[in-house]
């Protein structure tokens, strides 16, 4: 009797394990998506690089000016799940991504999968980057290749069980990795608003800080950009929907001015983690800032 029970338990565990294996397996990009790619345009790639804030995590901690282009990693992200350390993504062949091809890179950025087929942790905000156009990702790759190769690997992550099990992320991705746009607009919505949606929801990954998270760390898209406790450290990240507490009283020109200069309509100044984002937004072409502002004024308000 006991033996049969044991046997049953073993079989069940094996079946469960098999199922776990099945639902957690990496799902790479459709190779057909990569077939039609044009050769990467490093100039557009640079624009995407700033918008996507890759240097905010992958530049060495405290780096300023040109040193922010040496993407040796080392920046630590302290989260409730443990401390993640951004790795070296400079074009160094051994220590960085110098040996990767564009398919490896696109699968990392848009699907959170390593060239060896392991899942990345979503501290790397690929749930937003998943919404990028693959050509923009290829352009970004071309730009990254123009940056200096840096030797040396960053420290590993400090996580506790069960977060140490990368395979489990596959399950999480089934719930939270979705390349579809978050905010749906009716047919005939202005081109500028749609362009803004792409910039904010995709490369800009604004929702990663401004949207609250559910217990498992996934974004609560029902409260999109409605403000959230800061994931790292103290304080809160403000509501940037057109609500009374958010950007309701800001004109589109006010929002654009904030992105350019860091000053709010009351001439308070940008602070905290938004400083790096604002400095990046200030480098974009003006039409991108206008498009982001148009989108932020068009989305559902948090106090609707």
């Amino acid at each position: 009797m006991l033996r049969r029970l044991l046997l049953g338990a073993v079989l069940l565990a094996a079946a469960g394990g098999g199922l776990f294996w099945l639902v957690t397996r990496p799902q790479p990009l459709d190779p057909a998506l990569l077939d039609g790619l044009q050769p990467g345009d490093a100039q557009n790639g640079e624009r995407i690089f700033h918008l996507a804030g890759c240097a905010s995590c992958h530049a060495p901690p405290g780096a300023e000016g040109g040193a922010r282009l040496s993407l040796a990693g080392g920046h630590a992200l302290k989260t409730p799940f443990g401390t993640f350390v951004a790795p070296n993504i400079s074009p160094h062949v051994e220590d960085g991504i110098g040996g990767w091809d564009v398919a490896d890179f696109a699968n990392a950025v848009m699907r959170g999968i390593s060239p060896q087929g392991a899942h990345y942790y979503p501290a790397f905000p690929y749930t937003s980057y998943a919404r990028m156009e693959v050509q923009d990702v290829a352009d970004l790759f071309a730009y990254l290749k123009t940056l200096p190769p840096v030797a040396g690997r960053a420290d590993g992550h400090t996580l506790s069980f069960p977060y140490t099990v990368r395979r489990g992320i596959g399950l999480w991705k089934r719930l939270h990795l979705d390349a579809a746009p978050v905010v749906e607009f009716p047919a005939g919505a202005p081109e500028e608003v749609l362009r803004g949606r792409y910039l904010v929801e995709g490369p800009g990954h604004c929702g990663e800080c401004h949207t609250p998270r559910s217990l498992d760390g996934g974004l609560d898209t029902g409260r999109w950009l409605a403000g959230a406790p800061s994931l790292e450290g103290e304080g809160t990240v403000p509501d940037i929907t057109p609500s009374a507490d958010g950007l309701g009283a800001w004109s589109p020109a006010d929002i654009v001015y904030y992105f350019e200069t860091g000053f709010t309509p009351d001439f308070d100044s940008v602070g905290g983690a938004m400083v790096a984002v604002q400095e990046n937004l200030a480098r974009l072409p003006d039409e991108d800032r206008q498009a982001i502002a148009a989108y932020l004024k068009a989305i559902p308000s948090a106090d609707r």
């Binding site: 103290e234 809160t236 403000p238 602070g271």
Partner: peptide
């Protein structure tokens, strides 16, 4: 200086 000091020494809490 507004930006650089607020980056490290001010934290929004509302």
């Amino acid at each position: 200086n507004c930006r650089s000091c607020h980056e490290n020494f001010r934290v929004r809490n509302n």
